[in-house]
Design a protein around this nucleic acid. Sequence first.
DNA 1: ACATTTGTAGAGTGATTAGTCAATCATTAA
DNA 2: TTAATGATTGACTAATCACTCTACAAATGT
Lengths: 187, 187
Amino acid sequence: MDKQSEILKAALKLFVEFGFHGTPTSKIAQEAGVANGTLFHYYKTKDDLIVALYVDIKTRLGGCMYGAIDESMSYEETLKTIFNETLTWALANKMEFNFIQQFHTSPFISLLSKEEIAKQAQHHLEIIAKGIKKKHLKDLPVELLYTLITSHTFGIYQFIASSDFSGAKQKKLINESFELIWKMIKQ
Amino acid sequence: MDKQSEILKAALKLFVEFGFHGTPTSKIAQEAGVANGTLFHYYKTKDDLIVALYVDIKTRLGGCMYGAIDESMSYEETLKTIFNETLTWALANKMEFNFIQQFHTSPFISLLSKEEIAKQAQHHLEIIAKGIKKKHLKDLPVELLYTLITSHTFGIYQFIASSDFSGAKQKKLINESFELIWKMIKQ
DNA sequence: ACATTTGTAGAGTGATTAGTCAATCATTAA
DNA sequence: TTAATGATTGACTAATCACTCTACAAATGT
């Protein structure tokens, strides 16, 4: 692994444990096994590093979510697959998922431009809009449906992550919780 | 308003805007109109102040939630009232509600003892357990139902707070969104 | 072979921070 | 009146932080 990846990895670990301002850049460099100056060679400022880490994680999650769906699936199957992949990824990458949450509820979210935020949700919003148009989903505001699905996902993650279930039990819970949200939003 | 309250008020405003470590105690004192030393007279450390602020806000929210219910209500009415009061309070106290979320997803949550956390959720969990026992709610794990309701509430808050609806429209949305979650969890 | 860019190092710097402290001021109690 | 306790102040300090700078090594292009 190259030094730049090591820096991101170290930053993730420390940010999740100690928070953004609670983690000095010197500690990140130390944890990554590089010199102080090296960190600032790759990221001009600490804020740059934070944003880069967020974008990196979001990209990885996005790739995983949409890598699993294909055109032959029914609408319900598509949503279920995205829901499933998201939770499976989240449970396998808890630090990353916690980081996303921490970032979202922190003032650092303002480091992202509005366009960047919109771009991230766009694909999801399109899928939901399509579902409404084709009468698969209730005729509610797109943003509201998006929020409902997202917060349900985060909630289920929190519940599963805070307990200590077996892999099989986790899978069962994920399936059941999709049924719950699906009944709530389907037409 | 006494100086101690001014300090909490100033801390809330600055923490929500700049984060915990992003807000120096000197700025809090300045914003509150007191001397540096006064802050440390009331709160031994910055961490103490953060926890005190969290407890203060939680107490205010709790008081508001449970002040509105009484024994004569049906089970559904009780839940609906709590849901309603929570969202109404949250929308009228956005900084406070954002602070709670920020605190929950931050490493500072570990400053709270497990007993304190458990104590806070206990009343809610009891109500849910009662609902399951009396067949008002689905027979799912209490913690799961709690998580579902909580994350739904946070989601709806985020949706309403991020838009600019009239008071009437807000009320309508809150009512409709209770119907959604109620259908999901009722027996 | 040489020149240029890029990666890496770590000591150094000026600014900032949480928390202290000694000195007043306000209030109450004996 | 006097003593005692608590409230308030702001200058001060030791530590810490983000970031710079200079030097050197490695890679790359010509």
